[in-house]
Design a protein around this nucleic acid. Structure first.
Lengths: 202, 202
DNA sequence: GTCTATAGACGGATAGAC
DNA sequence: GTCTATCCGTCTATAGAC
């Protein structure tokens, strides 16, 4: 009984919190960090600006949670799909990762888009706070790419190829139109650039 | 005589105007459009905020000129280099374009970086004003890529490959460190993904 | 948990002196 | 051309009622 009550207590707060984060993600994606006013955000959630401070200590903390969720959503989608795929060739793993990253970016997540677009302009404290999750997701890709290039691959070659691919995927935020473009087609173009046997040192 | 005087009159204004644009480009690159305050901008140029309005009608117009210069600088660098290169194979033209775009982005131009980073968050009126220069630069790339893929290349394949390459180049703003990275190395990685004979329809 | 009310700072833009 | 002075709006954040 007592547990039931104490478990239920924070429920309303959690719901409101989630809704704030959802709306904030969309606003950050569309307008940017500085251009997202807490008044507008609160209005869309159906509350007043001051009430937000019951859920978040500051605008920076709010933005930080949105952006952290952004990386985690994409990262978990990719790793989960790769786990389910089981034992497939390294190149297939890489192409799968490309597809899931792009799919999640385009269909699922204002959070990820907000992260990608806003990161350069967010306060340094927020950037610092996000450093670790970002590095973690980078490591996921480094492993996938190293497996594709082969065990003896130069570390810099791995890093550069990672930047090429992530850049090609994230840049889709600037042009991808769901009405005209399809994820499969773009991934196909990208995969067409990845030879079955990635020889050479270039 | 009269001509000399009237020619000299606007000179001081032009110098000041250029300096404002230069500082504005750096501030937009570093902080973003909304976070660039005209007070700070004026202070770094050595004047007061109100004085800026002698040179520009509004903050939007100022941003617009910075961003337009950004595309033009890169576009002209690429086209000029290709003109000087003369008659070289289509794939070499493509790799040259990749190199110059990246070089200009990294060494020369806060203007281009400001454009790339700020475009998503700049007021719609500014975006509309920039639409034409952006399309013009897109056309430059479409021509280069179509020549590489061959005369029968599917229009969508051209467009997707363009997005892949431009994305891979522009994303360098997020990670490229001149102390550690070099343009040649990254272009080499990128070129390694472009086969001499771009067959298939993928 | 959410409200009202407001503090306190800063934003873009304008008018008129020099 | 640049300055001073200022209007007026918006912003984040806080305090205290309910």
């Amino acid at each position: 009984m007592i547990e039931a009550i104490s478990t239920r207590r924070p429920r309303k707060a959690q719901v409101a919190r989630r809704e704030i984060l959802t709306v904030a993600a969309r606003m950050m994606r569309e307008r940017g960090y500085a251009e997202m006013s807490l008044r507008d955000l609160a209005a869309e959630v159906g509350m007043k600006a001051g009430s937000l401070y019951y859920h978040f200590a500051s605008k920076e903390e709010l933005a930080c949670e949105v952006m952290r969720a952004g990386v985690e959503i994409v990262s978990e989608a990719v790793t989960q799909e790769l786990n389910e795929a089981g034992d497939i060739p390294p190149r297939d793993r890489l192409v799968t990762a490309l597809r899931i990253h792009l799919e999640t970016l385009q269909s699922a997540s204002d959070f990820a888009s907000a992260h990608i677009r806003c990161y350069p302009f967010v306060p340094p404290a927020v950037q610092a706070e996000l450093k670790e999750v970002r590095r973690a997701y980078d490591r996921v890709w480094s492993i996938i790419i190293r497996a594709y290039l082969g065990p003896g691959a130069d570390a810099n070659r791995v890093r550069y190829l990672r930047h090429v691919l992530i850049g090609a995927l994230n840049w889709s935020l600037e042009w991808f139109d769901p009405e005209r473009d399809d994820v499969a087609g773009y991934v196909e173009t990208l995969a067409g650039l990845l030879p079955a046997e990635p020889g050479g040192s270039a």
